[in-house]
Design a protein around this nucleic acid. Structure first.
Lengths: 341, 341
DNA sequence: CAAGCTGGTGAAAAGGATTTCACCCCCATA
DNA sequence: TATGGGGGTGAAATCCTTTTCACCAGCTTG
């Protein structure tokens, strides 16, 4: 039964050569120019398109790389994806995106697909520090780069931001602006970004203890990195006997939720200071404008892809972790409690 | 040379059966329970993971479906992607996302990948009405569904919104609110959504000609469906001798750009009416709140995936086009020119 | 008791490309 | 005139799984 529309054999027959020669024409083997010419022509006439499965099976390596991200609806990750794509663009590799939805089961399935499809490489922003198992891929020799989030023990190259430092700078800025009761809404326990940004916050508060600042765990909430989580956490803290006068939110979407919750009770920045880790999407429309730790999302993707490509070319350099700088962008939402309160 | 970590042969040998039996165990063939048991165990011990390439090659069909979208940074498409994923979730199929970036070359590459990788199905929001060639996929018998955008002549199932009707309702609303010089910023020529939303706008203006409304092509701009395009188009029209007093923008991102441009010259809705086709992301933060034609992005994805799954199960029903309703959500940005001007 | 199922099994072909290996031809060098 | 070498070529093996086909054993039915 003929199934594939046209195979390398058909082309070979049409051009009067062997399949091996056809293969060489398409893969840069040595072939006399005139023969190559007639193969090209036969292929064009028959509308030959190589079967990538057969090729990958034989070569033990496909020509697509997988990018696994935990939330496709978060502009941070889509921007990161653009960075990866643009880097891959200059090669013949295609990037496919997989959305794990912060769900380790879905993530595991995609990792299995990546392994089973013999993908040429994998870039992963891990859904979990502990449950993300990159072992099989690594054992199989597939290049893997962790981006943004760092899986716990895995022996992989990594590209991330200086989360702890960024968190510390952010919190220090809130203190300097005069806020006293600074809360923190961070992400799920187990995500490295959650933990490290929180650690930066704690470090800054700790350093300010001599000024009478006390760290209080009632002001710390773990949420889910989504809008709803931020909203719920903010509501809870607003209901405290002594609500915070500022909040450091460790991701962009939760910041949106927190702002919503504040608006519900008629409070707006900078009366309550609001500082976001990661730019809020289309922040230009938000009033007052938001102070944020700017996260180089695009560059994270770009750097991860570059690292992956190096490994795919066979670089045997020792494992590296690339840390990209964040930058505090000061705007109106942290102008200080006195100014308008 | 041993390359694949462990193959079906290894499992077969370990379990004392033939490879055929191992295959049957994993694919629901008839095998005596005890044999199946020992195969399972051997597979587990050896850490067997099937080679999906070999499987797909043999079966002439892989178990992933491709979703090709033109702008991964547009929340409309990421929401649509969620719809597709959720629908696919209940099957054993995986969804991979490809970002064509409104670039027909990139899109063509992804279509080639989908064909060459023998993907089980393709859902595509076409970058172009004319240059998107689904022919090879269709010829090969791969189920294809067009979503949101309709490629011109292609014989495929389609799922889309009632773009023209939505555009007409939107424009009528602006007229009724009292705006007289209503502009339209639409997408690239050649995208069906651009054209149809524009057609709706024109129809509404035409219907109102008896009230002294004149349609003027100086008030119609084609941009690129991105923030920058919207900003540039709005700036141009603000520089006209008689700038528009309202604008109907045919997608969410361009609306953001248009709002920016308005803010630059100190004008805000509803003094200038602003109406967006498609919700602006995280609109809750935008003041004044924006009137928008609500686009069922998630449901579009969902419906497209359902249709695709039907075809994959062999449905031979005639080609269908599913049209989903939009809904005008009236908010503050179109309260009328008199109210604040 | 013969004939016919039926369920379970393994050998081998198939799927389409790449790559190794042997070979041939032609030219340059000794 | 031999010998060596190198470029070009095709046959066949290879990648790993699924699936067909033939076969066998054990049962039921006429």
């Amino acid at each position: 039964m003929r199934t594939q529309v046209v195979t390398i054999h058909d082309v070979a027959r049409a051009a009067g050569v062997s399949p091996a020669t056809v293969s060489r024409v398409f893969n840069g083997g040595r072939v006399t120019p005139e023969r190559a010419q007639s193969v090209q022509q036969a292929a064009a006439e028959l509308g030959f398109a190589p079967n990538r499965l057969a090729r990958s099976l034989r070569k033990q390596r496909s020509s697509v790389i997988a990018l696994i991200i935990p939330d496709i609806e978060n502009p941070f990750f889509t921007s990161l994806a653009r960075g990866v794509e643009d880097a891959a663009q200059r090669t013949s590799l295609s990037v496919v995106l997989c959305n794990s939805d912060e769900d380790t089961d879905k993530e595991r399935r995609y990792l299995e697909v990546a392994l089973g499809e013999q993908m040429a490489g994998v870039i992963v922003a891990a859904a979990s520090q502990d449950d993300t198992d990159l072992g099989p891929l690594i054992a199989r020799g597939v290049p893997v780069v962790a981006v943004d989030r760092r899986p716990h023990e895995a022996e992989v190259d990594a590209v991330r931001a200086d989360d702890q430092h960024g968190g510390e700078v952010a919190t220090r800025h809130l203190l300097r602006a005069g806020y006293r009761r600074i809360a923190c809404i961070t992400g799920p326990e187990g995500a490295s970004t959650s933990e490290e940004r929180l650690a930066g916050y704690r470090a800054a508060l700790h350093a300010a203890r001599s000024e009478g600042i006390v760290a209080d765990d009632a002001y710390v909430r773990h949420a889910d990195f989504r809008v709803e989580g931020g909203r719920a956490a903010m509501r809870e803290m607003l209901a405290l006997p002594e609500p915070p006068d500022a909040v450091f939110v460790t991701n962009n979407l939760m910041t949106i939720g927190a702002l919503d919750a504040l608006a519900e009770v008629g409070r707006t920045p900078p009366g309550v200071g609001v500082l976001s880790f990661g730019d809020v999407p289309w922040a230009s429309l938000v009033r007052p404008s938001l102070t944020a730790v700017e996260l180089p999302s695009y560059e994270l993707g770009r750097a991860a892809a570059d690292l992956l490509l190096q490994r795919m070319e066979g670089s045997a350099a020792p494992l590296q972790t690339v840390v990209l700088r964040t930058r505090l962008q000061i705007r109106e939402s942290t102008a200080g409690p006195v100014a308008t309160d």
